[in-house]
């Protein structure tokens, strides 16, 4: 049993010559909450897809529980994924199923549990996210925050070793955000899982993460505990953490001379 459940080793990935990641190294120790932060479009979600084996890296490798993901067969990847639970950005609940059936879905697919046992487990998971009372609702009847919590219950349905959160705070009101924040930390500690959070919400992420990686321009720009990073003087981290408009990440998308562009017709 390795100490790090997920290891990313010198990983590069890109589409058609445009490299999104170049030589990324990350480790995710067991039982910790580790966050990957970065601006929009910095390839955070792509990193999660690489961990989940949905896409293959151009160079380097991702190891989950000691096994290289991209060399696995389809069966092997499915075996690895059964150790993971993933919370999608908008929950990705199955809209044709009820809340109860959504949480029961992974159990029905992967186990032969009798109905009574599935019922108990589903209600336990829903209770953990505080939505036991909503089990008969349709997935479409839920608010954004509730949907996210149901999706979380579904992600932990089979007690995975790793729970991956893709933008868990995006688009939530402050109360729901606080609830989710609290849930991630408590579930992580109660179930002994490892949590990987991808987010750009600094305050919430810093409040629960044990360790944070900053991704920018395809590489790890900075890493450390939230406390270290808050004090960091690196220009990029400073800009990101304090939400400044201009800095190493320019306000303007790369463009030609402004004057030239506007007066170009007469020239």
């Amino acid at each position: 049993m390795t100490q790090n459940i997920v290891e990313i080793d010198n990983l590069s990935f890109g589409y058609k010559g445009r490299m999104l990641h170049q030589g990324i190294n990350m480790v995710f120790p067991r039982g910790k909450v580790v966050a990957i932060m970065g601006g929009s479009g910095s390839g955070k979600t792509t990193l999660l897809r690489l961990i989940g084996g949905q896409i293959k890296p151009t160079k380097g490798e991702v190891r989950v529980d000691g096994q290289v993901v991209h060399t696995q067969t389809r069966e092997g990847i499915y075996q690895l994924r059964r150790k993971m639970g993933m919370l999608f950005q908008h929950g990705a609940l199955f809209t044709d199923l009820s809340v109860y059936e959504n949480v029961a879905f992974p159990m029905r697919e992967h186990t032969d549990f009798p109905e009574s046992m599935i019922r108990d487990l589903v209600l336990m998971k829903l209770h953990a996210v505080g939505l036991r009372g909503a089990h008969q609702l349709k997935a479409t009847e839920l608010s954004g925050g509730m949907a996210r919590r149901v999706a979380l219950a579904r992600a932990i349905a089979l007690d995975p070793d790793i729970v991956i959160y893709d933008e868990p705070f995006a688009g939530l009101d402050p109360i729901s955000m606080g609830v989710i924040c609290d849930l991630i930390r408590t579930l992580n500690d109660a179930l002994g899982t490892t949590s990987i959070i991808v987010s750009h919400d600094v305050k919430e992420t810093f409040s629960i993460a044990d360790y944070v990686y900053f991704v920018a321009n395809g590489t790890v720009a900075a890493e450390g505990t939230p406390a270290d990073l808050s004090k960091s003087t690196l220009p990029f981290v400073h800009q990101f953490v304090h939400g400044e408009k201009d800095g190493p990440v320019p306000f303007h998308y790369a463009a030609g001379d402004y004057k030239q562009d506007l007066l170009g017709y007469e020239a």
């Binding site: 989940g52 949905q54 499915y78 999608f88 990705a92 809209t95 992974p106 992967h110």
Partner: peptide, 10 residues
């Protein structure tokens, strides 16, 4: 992302 979610649930 329901199909991706399914994929990720193996």
């Amino acid at each position: 992302e329901q199909l991706s979610a399914m994929e990720m649930m193996a």
